[in-house]
């Protein structure tokens, strides 16, 4: 355990339509045991006591599952450590004297609301357009009625692990939401329960994705590299197949 001094450059922006800029803050004696968000808490306490406006950032569960947190740190979404969300990133990944450039997830489809806080409701709208099995409450068959091979369930679970944080979009040079969309399409097309609507689902979700202003996939693999849940781009290949099959069969 040790303490480090940091130089922070943080994106400050008052509102969606106001101009933003980087502001520099010196922050000393940060314990390397702290999480990244605890470091921001310390900064905000300091700014508050100095009569300055604290940095707005999204966060909630602080254990890597709610998907609410996320900024770009030195050019990498969720920072330098692999397979973690920002709240799981710990300060032991940084050295004394480091400069950290902290900015929001940037995408045409994710308008900045304040500082590091963005609006990702476009993701909700993608799910709303078809990311479900259309089943009402009640009257469903016994859980064991349809056997699902363990490897299939595991593969579906790999895709279902997506937390909807948006790091994939922020890292893609095209601002594509393919990894996010393909994770849900994959989960449901792998499972027997998702078969009935699989074609319509792929068509609707891709259409919404385009309408929301997300870009196209050109296999840059940046999304997979930053995904805190290691969602594989194989899911994107699966989505492409699903989409193609859907276009051919549904027109």
């Amino acid at each position: 355990m040790s303490d480090i001094d940091l130089n922070l450059q943080i994106w400050r922006q008052k509102k969606t339509d106001s101009p933003g800029s980087f502001q520099t803050y010196a922050l000393d004696k940060i314990s390397t045991e702290m999480s990244f968000l605890e470091m921001l808490d310390v900064l905000n306490e300091k700014l508050t006591k100095e009569g300055l406006d604290p940095v707005a950032f999204d966060h909630d569960c602080r254990e890597g599952i709610c998907g609410m947190c996320g900024t770009v740190v030195n050019g990498v979404a969720h920072g330098p450590e692999k397979e973690v969300t920002l709240c799981q990133l710990h300060m032991r990944n940084f050295q004394n004297g480091d400069t950290l450039v902290i900015e929001p997830f940037r995408s045409r489809a994710f308008p900045i609301r304040k500082d590091l806080l963005v609006d990702r409701s476009a993701f909700d709208r993608i799910i709303q357009s078809g990311g479900y099995v259309s089943v009402n409450t009640g009257g469903t068959p016994d859980g064991n009625a349809i056997p699902i091979p363990a490897p299939t369930a595991e593969l579906a679970m790999d895709a279902a692990a997506c937390i909807g944080c948006g790091a994939c979009v922020a890292s893609c040079p095209n601002g594509a939401a393919m990894l996010f969309t393909s994770a849900k399409v994959s989960q449901l097309c792998l499972l027997p329960q998702g078969q009935t609507e699989r074609h319509q689902r792929a068509l609707n979700m891709v259409e919404t994705m385009d309408k929301e202003g997300f870009g196209n996939c050109s296999n840059e693999r940046e999304c997979e590299a930053v995904c805190p849940k290691s969602i594989s781009i194989r899911n994107i290949a699966r989505l492409n197949r699903e989409y193609l099959k859907a276009v051919l069969s549904e027109g």
């Binding site: 099995v133 009640g138 469903t140 859980g143 299939t152 369930a153 279902a160 989960q187 499972l191 329960q193």
Partner: peptide, 22 residues
């Protein structure tokens, strides 16, 4: 019990045995 059935029908990927049962 109905909760489990409901969630399976929604496509919740519960852990499975190799034979495919829950």
């Amino acid at each position: 019990n109905s909760i489990i059935d409901q969630c399976v029908a929604q496509g919740v990927p519960f852990a499975r045995e190799y034979g495919g049962t829950m």
